[in-house]
Nucleic acid binder design. Structure first.
Lengths: 338, 338
DNA sequence: GTGAAAGCGCTAACAG
DNA sequence: CTGTTAGCGCTTTCAC
C-alpha cells in the first residue's frame, strides 16, 4: 500500500518533508545521523516516492523513449532489435531510468502518438532508429527541443547525435579479405537503395575494389531487401555472370544465396565463396559456416543510451557522433584460397 | 514549446480550466459550440496536456509495463519477443497507453527496480512473461495489488489472469499427425523440465501416444533447452534408438536435429521424419521445409494487453484465462507416408 | 543543516 | 452545462 507520502515519512522520522526529499535525492546538507534515521524509516516502511508527483515538480520523467518508425517496423522482428533493446535497457536500469517503447505500425499512429511523445513531457529524451533518409519522425525530432540520439545515421545530419556501426569499413574489410584470398570476380548482393546501411555497405564494396584498381562491374551488383528470399533471388540472377565470390549485405541474404547455390548444386566455397554481414546466430550454423561481418549491436544500444543520458545532464552540445568498428568473423564460406 | 497549460487554453477560449479539461477528456456536459471553440484553440496551439500533472491528479499513468524476468532474459533475443511486443504495442497505441519495458538481467536489478515498478505508480498494470514455475517476480506481483496478466501460465495459478497457447493440444496434434502418417517409433526432443511450455508439449506427446494405446519409451524422450545446439545433441543421442520420426518442442531444436541428420547422412523425411514447434521464419526455409506447430504469438500479446486494459477498467475479477489454439503447418519434413 | 512555503499542471468533486 | 475550489505528492527556492 503506497499510501505513504513524503509527509508521513517526515513525521515518522521527526523531520520536515524537505529533509526527507534531500535524503531520497542524495543531496548534501543533511547531517549524517539525520540522514541515517530518515533512511531507516524509509527502509522499514518500504516507502517509494510517487513518480508522477516527482515528475510534475521536477519537470523530468526519468523515462527514455525508443522510437521505431513504421518504415523500420517491418524489420522489428529481426534479431537485431532485441539486442539493441538489451543494450539500452542495461543502461536505463543502471541509471534509474525507464525505457518506453514507441512502435509505430501506421502513419496514423505516428501522427497521433508522436506529438504526444514529444510534447507531453512523457519522456526526457528519445532514441530513434532511423534507416531511410528523409525520415519524417526524425525531422520532427530535429525541429523539436527534445534531446535525442539516432541509431544509424541517414542522410546528412549536421549536429545530430547518432551511433552507427562502420558499415563502410566492415564491407571494405570483407571484400578485401576475399581479394586477399585470390577471388577475382567478386559480386555483391546489396540492400535497398534508400537505406543508409545498405548504401554504406555497397560503398565499402566499391571502395575495396577500387583500392586494388579493379573495375566495378554493374552486372555483379544486385539489390535485395535484406531478406532471405531476396538473397535467394539475387543469387540466381548473379549466377549467369559467374562470380567466384559474393559479398551479401546481410546474413539473411547470404543465407538465401546459400540456398540458391545448394539448389543449383554449386559448391561453397569451392566454386563460389560467400560472405555475409551481421553475424546472426544462424551464421555459425549454416552449412558451410558463414564468414560474416559482426556488428556490435548491443554496444550500439548501450552507447546510444549513455550518450543520451549524458546529453540530458550536460546539454546536447556538442553533438555526439559515434561510429563503432565491426569485426570480420572468418568461418568456412569464404574458403581459403591463397 | 509546451509552455502551454490548461489555464492558458482556457483563457484563450474564454472558458474555465474545467471546461477545457472536459473537452480534452471527452467528457459530457459541454455545449457542442463551446466544445468546438475549445477544440479549435487546442488544435491551433498544438497544446498537449502535461502527463505528470495528469497522472498526479488522476492517479493513473496510462503506462503498461512489460516485465521480462532475468530467467527469461536469456531467450529475449528469440524471434518470439518482437512479435509479442508488436501485439502489445498495437493495443497500447490504440488505447492511448504507453508501453514500458522492464528487462532484468540480474537478480540485483530485479531487487532494485521491481519494487519501484510496483509501488511508484509508474505503471497502471503489468504484463509479465513467466516461464519457469516458482518465479519470484510473479509471486511478488500476486502479493501486490497491481493488476497484471501473465504470458504463459506456470504452475498452478488460481485467480491469476493469463494468456497462453495450447501447447498440449499443439503437441498432440503434431504427434497424432505423425501417427496418422504411419510412423510407429516416434521420439521427442523435449524442453527443460521446469519450463511449463516444455512440460505441456511433452504431455501432448505422451497424450497422443497413449490415445492410440502406444507405450511410452523413455529412451525416445530426450531433453534439450530449446536451442539449436541442444537439438543437435539430442538427435545424436536418439539415433541409437532409431526412431522413424521425431517431434521437437521448438523449431530451433528441430533445426539442430536436421543438422545432426544431415551430418549423419540420414534422409529426412525418408528415414526419419521431423516436426517442430513455433513456426519461426526459418522453418519454411529449412531443407526440407519444416512441418511445425504455429503459435499465434502476436495475438497472445494483443490479448494480454486487451485483457489487462479491461481489468483496469472493470476490475481484476474474475480472472481472465485464455488458451489460444495452435495450428499444424504441414510442409515436407514430416513426409507423406500413407 | 533544516524547515516553511510556494508551486508544478492537472482532475474531480461540488456548487450554482 | 460551467466555474470554483481543493488538492494529488513532490521539488525547490528562500529564510533562518
Amino acid at each position: 500500500m503506497s499510501r505513504l507520502t513524503l509527509e508521513k515519512i517526515a513525521a515518522l522520522a521527526g523531520v520536515s518533508r524537505s529533509t526527507v526529499s534531500r535524503v531520497i535525492n542524495d543531496q548534501v546538507n543533511v547531517r549524517p545521523e539525520v540522514r541515517e534515521r530518515v533512511q531507516q524509516v524509509i527502509d522499514e516502511t518500504g516507502y517509494q516516492p510517487n513518480q508522477a508527483a516527482r515528475s510534475l515538480a521536477s519537470k523530468r520523467s526519468t523515462i527514455l523513449g525508443l522510437v521505431i518508425p513504421r518504415n523500420v517496423q517491418s524489420v522489428f522482428a529481426d534479431p537485431y532489435f532485441p539486442r539493441l533493446i538489451q543494450g539500452i535497457s542495461l543502461v536505463c536500469n543502471e541509471n534509474d531510468y525507464v525505457l518506453s517503447l514507441f512502435l509505430f505500425h501506421t502513419e496514423d499512429e505516428e501522427n497521433k502518438i508522436y506529438p504526444r511523445v514529444l510534447n507531453q513531457g512523457f519522456v526526457d529524451g528519445v532514441i530513434i532508429t532511423s534507416m531511410v533518409s528523409g525520415d519524417t519522425l526524425l525531422d520532427q525530432l530535429k525541429d523539436s527541443d527534445m534531446p535525442f540520439v539516432a541509431i544509424g545515421r541517414t542522410a546528412d545530419m549536421p549536429d545530430v547525435s547518432y551511433v552507427d556501426v562502420d558499415n563502410v569499413g566492415g564491407a571494405t574489410t570483407a571484400v578485401t579479405h576475399l581479394m586477399n584470398l585470390g577471388y577475382k570476380h567478386i559480386a555483391t548482393i546489396a540492400g535497398p537503395a534508400d537505406v543508409r546501411a545498405a548504401i554504406d555497405r555497397l560503398q565499402g564494396y566499391t571502395t575495396a575494389l577500387a583500392a586494388r584498381g579493379l573495375q566495378i562491374d554493374p552486372d555483379l551488383i544486385v539489390r535485395g531487401d535484406f531478406s532471405e528470399a531476396s538473397g535467394y533471388a539475387a543469387m540466381q540472377q548473379l549466377l549467369s555472370h559467374s562470380p567466384d565470390a559474393v559479398f551479401a549485405a546481410s546474413d539473411a541474404m547470404a543465407q538465401g544465396a546459400l540456398r540458391a547455390l545448394r539448389e543449383a548444386q554449386i559448391g561453397v566455397p569451392d566454386t563460389i565463396a560467400i560472405v555475409g554481414f551481421d553475424d546472426l546466430a544462424l551464421a555459425a550454423l549454416e552449412k558451410p559456416a558463414l564468414t560474416t561481418v559482426r556488428q556490435p549491436i548491443q554496444r550500439v544500444g548501450k552507447l546510444a543510451a549513455e550518450n543520451l543520458l549524458d546529453m540530458l545532464q550536460n546539454g546536447v552540445d556538442p553533438p555526439r557522433r559515434l561510429l563503432l568498428p565491426t569485426e570480420l568473423v572468418i568461418r568456412d564460406s569464404c574458403g581459403k584460397k591463397g
